[in-house]
Design a protein around this nucleic acid. Structure first.
Lengths: 137, 137
DNA sequence: ATAAAATGCTACTTAATTTTAGTATTTCTT
DNA sequence: AAGAAATACTAAAATTAAGTAGCATTTTAT
């Protein structure tokens, strides 16, 4: 169970962008909106472009827009693309063999909880988040 | 949502010790049993002693034993003592203000899932794990 | 007594993650 | 054509996390 800071950033970026799904955002603008160091943010935006969530347009009035509908981007995909799905799905005690051997003492107990996490991430799209974004500024 | 490697180690150590709850384990022995670098393991064991989960006896036949019953040590306490409870309970997007302002877009959606994780950790003792430790060696 | 086998303390080193910097390229505006 | 405002690429610096080393101390066995 492990979300890196970078994953959190990615989720923050994209969930923010989802508020106005068709708008174009520049790195500078996003930096002012959410609180992520601007140079690192830029790198992440490039990564998210490469991963196919957003696309960039270059040049003066450039920026980033979604490359597919926010209702079709699920949180699990985002975490997967940054940290890898193993970060969520892997053994909670860090044993490599656990997944196929069911060896670890926490395997049975953790299974259901883990599944709940995975399901939430798999079933929640960026569009779904927007509905719940009541008072964020 | 963030379990550090060190937290995983701590869980591994203690869940392994819980298999024979009254036994005494040396760092060397534990190192051979579970796969954690021996010097780091020793440091963690000292930390876990200070946190009150186990107690150490010095000298030649020394080692570590539980300082309270494994049925009274809950996984949440272990994670809390190593990474801090915030690592589990904190905002999934990393916003500081989320907890009291309910500001973050994922707050509502994540709430229930997070609670499931917390409940599992809070309700599972090291003794409970033992029951589920079917084939681990 | 002395050596062996254990923990405890403190500092150091390495590795991974996060952040910053510099420079190139693209595109629009004027 | 030139400058402004954007992204892209690569390298480096800073920070944090993980792992290692040395030496001191404690206890037991011989």
């Amino acid at each position: 169970m492990n979300f890196s800071k970078t994953s959190k950033y990615a989720l923050r970026i994209l969930s923010h962008m989802a508020k106005d799904e068709t708008a174009q955002y520049s790195a500078q603008q996003l930096h002012e909106d959410i609180n992520i160091p601007v140079r690192y943010l830029r790198r992440l935006l490039t990564d998210l472009s490469k991963s196919g969530f957003i696309k960039s347009t270059h040049g003066r009035n450039g920026g980033f827009t979604f490359s597919r509908s926010a209702s079709q981007i699920f949180l699990s995909e985002i975490v997967d693309s940054v940290d890898g799905f193993e970060s969520i799905n892997g053994c909670i005690l860090g044993y490599d063999s656990c997944a196929f051997d069911y060896k670890c003492p926490m395997h049975v107990i953790w299974q259901e909880t883990k599944q709940k996490v995975i399901n939430t991430l798999k079933n929640t799209s960026l569009h779904d988040l927007r509905k719940n974004d009541l008072v964020f500024d």
